[in-house]
């Protein structure tokens, strides 16, 4: 059990570093979604099933969707990532 916890924890840490040091914003948002759903797995390992369901439905789906809509609207108004 300890090795599983350590594996998921290291995955979360590496995912967080990838989110911060990613060049493209869209890739960073998708990686944040992966980190969020993995944290939901960790909540389930801590026997917090209520929190796991809430994190999977709100943190992983709706937050990622809101970030993506913001990027889409920014690009429609003339935002260019490369500049």
């Amino acid at each position: 059990m300890i090795y599983w916890i350590a594996a998921v924890g290291i995955f979360l840490f590496l995912g967080g570093i990838t989110v911060i040091f990613q060049k493209s914003i869209k890739n960073a948002v998708i990686t944040f979604g992966i980190v969020s759903i993995t944290s939901s797995l960790m909540f389930a390992m801590m026997k917090a099933y209520d929190v796991a369901i809430t994190e999977a439905s709100i943190g992983a789906v709706l937050t990622t969707a809101l970030f993506f809509w913001t990027i889409k609207r920014l690009e429609e108004e003339g935002y260019n990532e490369k500049k």
Partner: peptide
Amino acid sequence: YIIFHGHLSPGGGFPGGAIIASAYM
């Protein structure tokens, strides 16, 4: 289902409401 079984099983008003909102999405 998640909303109305909040007192018996994991879940409740917050995740159930979020799931209905994602159906609207």
